[in-house]
Amino acid sequence: MSELAIDLEFILGRYNYWLFSILMMTGLYITVSRGNLIKKIVGLNIFQTSVFMLYISLGKVTGGTAPILTGDPDTVYSNPLPHVLILTAIVVGIATTAVGLALVVRIKETYGTIEEDEILELEHDMDFGNGAPQGGSRA
C-alpha cells in the first residue's frame, strides 16, 4: 500500500514535466518533418510555448497564489521570477517570429514558393542546370 502511495506521489510530482516534454517534441516534429516554411514557424512557436510552460510550472507552489500582494502575512505566493523571465521571452519570441515571417515573404518573392523541397530543387538548378553561371549561384 505504502509502495503504491509513494509511486503516486512520484508521478504527481513529475507528470507536468513529462507532458511538456511530449508537447515540445510535437513542436520539434512539425519543425523538422514539414517542408512548408510557415508551418515550420508554427512548430517553433509550439516548441517555444512548451518551454514557457516548463518554466512556469517550476515556479508553482502548491497551495500558493499568484504573486500579487494580498496584505495577509500568511499568504503563500508562487515564485514571481520565472514569470518575469517568461514575460520577456514571450515578447522576444514574437519579435523573432516577425523576422522569420518577413524572411518567408522575401523567399516567396525571390523563389516563387515557400516549400523547402522546391527551393532546394531551384537552388540545384541554379548551380548545375542549363545556363548556370560559372561557379554556381553562390559565387
Binding site: V42, G59, I94, T97
Partner: peptide, 28 residues
C-alpha cells in the same frame, strides 16, 4: 498559465501569442 498562478504571463500570451502572432501569420 492561469492555473499555474502566472496571471501576467497569461495576459501577455493571450494578447501577443493569440493576437499579434495570428495577425502576423495571416498577413504572411
Amino acid at each position: 498559465f492561469v492555473t499555474l498562478d502566472a496571471m501576467d504571463v497569461a495576459f501577455t500570451e493571450a494578447a501577443v501569442g493569440a493576437g499579434i502572432s495570428t495577425v502576423l501569420m495571416l498577413g504572411t
